[in-house]
């Protein structure tokens, strides 16, 4: 779970019991956090993650209700089931946080990420990159005689897969937004 590995029994000189009792299965969860869009609210949420040693795999944030000044923070995090429960409870008690939803357990959800890839190359590599982009339904949003910028949305796995393919073909730069996610169905 963490890089710090402490051997069994090494706690005898410490005021704390340093052994890792909850080394269970690590799960990945996508949390949607609805917050008042006030100064510093993002710092409160991510400061809690860093301060308590939780992981952030990806993070997106934007105001989603301009009139109500409400922002949606989507956090993809990893941890044991206990840690995930703790994260939700800890985030939930931040004063400007209205709701915390665990999209991974609350039913089916859809997750999308947007990525931009700059691929440099000429000749066959260039042709192959374009052909693969078509298969992945990536759009060309910028082009020079030696390069393309592809735009693509999809799950993080799909974007990872496309990046893998582009690497030998001249991938020079990548930008990703992180995951945005919603629960499926009609209910908000």
């Amino acid at each position: 779970m963490s890089a710090l590995r402490i051997q069994q029994g090494s706690s005898s000189h410490s005021a704390y019991d340093l052994r890792d009792y909850h080394a269970e299965v690590i799960e990945k969860h996508t949390l949607a956090v609805l917050v008042d869009n006030e100064a510093g609210v993002l710092a409160r949420v991510i400061g809690l993650f860093s301060g308590r040693g939780y992981n952030i795999e990806s993070l997106t944030v934007a105001e989603v209700d301009h009139e109500g000044h409400r922002s949606r923070i989507t956090v993809v995090t990893t941890g044991t089931r206990d840690v995930i429960e703790q994260i939700k409870a800890q985030v939930g008690r931040i004063v400007p946080v209205h709701e915390v939803h665990d999209l991974t357990v609350e039913g089916p959800s859809i997750e999308r990420e947007l990525a931009l890839f700059k691929v440099e190359g000429t000749g066959n590599n260039r042709i192959e990159a374009l052909r693969l982009a078509e298969i992945f339904r990536a759009n060309v949003v910028d082009s020079t005689l030696e390069s393309f910028v592809f735009e693509m949305t999809g799950t993080s796995e799909k974007i990872d897969a496309f990046a893998e393919l582009m690497r030998p073909l001249g991938l020079v730069e990548t930008a990703r937004t992180g995951v945005a996610a919603l629960a499926r169905g009609s209910k908000a």
């Binding site: 703790q86 409870a89 800890q90 008690r93």
Partner: peptide
């Protein structure tokens, strides 16, 4: 608190535990 529990795995091994707390983040922490 860790000053209370001592070794976690051996903490009160045969009891049912009720926890009344106003802070949800204290539960199962």
């Amino acid at each position: 608190d860790d000053r209370i529990t001592g070794r976690i795995q051996d903490f009160s091994p045969n009891s049912k535990k009720i926890h009344v707390d106003i802070d949800p983040s204290s539960i199962n922490k």
